[in-house]
């Protein structure tokens, strides 16, 4: 690992100043579970590493009338154990539980997962179906960006120079709902998703998101429309939605799986995610 400057500011303003000063030469250190691996492999060689864990507001996880705010430095395990998450946004806890190992989840954060913008990031698809917004700080103020607009491509996000993500805002959910995340991987413990599907139903309206089948997480409008049109969703009636799923993804072949297999698995994952969501619907 090449050497660099390490700074640990205590205010957002200070972070913004450093980011503005160094531009691409500055990298945010949060959980570090992605950053350090990339630095070890010399894929990135930052001049300055900005540790944001000293900023207390980033450690907050709180529910207000605006919804649930999860600060940038809140770890996966904190989310998994959060009562409010388990009560109101269970699908997010479930997907966080799929990230890496237990010890990794003690460091890794949801916001880190989002900013990493990997197509297989486990917590991102649930954020899509929960209509999450990314809360971004810059010295002129705060802006809120829907997650779908925030993630632009593989490792590409909508952050301008001097900007930093404060956290994720999940709007309140009213009425009956249930959601589930189904991940298909090669191994049960610690693996990246070969494909994954997040399914969420609120007052009979479905939201579907696919992971690891395109450069970004994708919403599944066709599958959603079909599911919304069904009077009863079950193993048989949802087959057209499974077929639709294959038409709205563009997987590639890589070492984890071939394109054909991913297409097969997106169908099955959709089915399993939807049926599991129904089980939890209340």
């Amino acid at each position: 690992m090449k050497n660099f400057e390490y700074v640990k500011p205590s205010t957002m303003e200070a972070v913004a100043d450093i980011l503005q000063q160094y531009g691409d030469g500055a990298k945010i250190l949060n959980g570090g579970t992605d950053l350090l691996v990339r630095m070890r492999d010399n894929l990135i060689k930052p001049q300055v590493v900005v540790d944001i864990k000293g900023i207390s507001e980033l450690r907050k996880i709180e529910y207000t009338e605006e919804g649930l705010f999860i600060g940038a430095a809140v770890t996966m395990n904190e989310v998994i154990c959060s009562k409010i998450v388990l009560e109101k946004y269970r699908i997010l806890a479930q997907s966080a539980h799929e990230v890496g190992s237990y010890q990794l989840r003690n460091r890794a954060t949801i916001v880190g997962n989002v900013c990493n913008a990997s197509p297989s990031g486990d917590t991102i698809a649930p954020l899509y179906v929960l209509s999450a917004k990314v809360k971004i700080f810059n010295k002129d103020g705060i802006r809120l960006v829907p997650i779908e607009n925030f993630i632009l491509g593989v490792r590409k996000i909508d952050l301008k120079s001097g900007e930093i993500v404060l956290g994720i805002l999940l709007p309140p959910i009213k009425g009956q709902n249930g959601g589930s995340y189904y991940k298909h991987a090669r191994r049960k413990d610690v693996d990246l998703a070969t494909v994954a599907v997040a399914a969420f139903c609120n007052e009979g309206q479905w939201k579907i998101a696919y992971a690891a089948v395109a450069p970004t997480i994708l919403r599944g409008p066709k599958a959603e429309e079909i599911l919304n049109s069904l009077s009863e969703v079950d193993e048989n009636t949802l087959i057209p939605a499974m077929d639709a799923a294959t038409s709205e993804v563009t997987p590639i072949s890589d070492v984890r799986a071939g394109k054909e297999y991913r297409l097969d698995m997106i169908r099955i994952s959709l089915k399993r995610a939807v049926l599991a969501a129904l089980e939890l619907y209340k």
């Binding site: 090669r186 191994r187 049960k188 413990d189 610690v190 693996d191 990246l192 070492v255 984890r256």
Partner: peptide, 16 residues
């Protein structure tokens, strides 16, 4: 070799 690491060369873990 396209998978020279434990990310993509999976050996059995406890749930196997």
């Amino acid at each position: 070799v396209k998978n020279p690491n434990f990310v993509d060369y999976k050996i059995p873990a406890v749930r196997d």
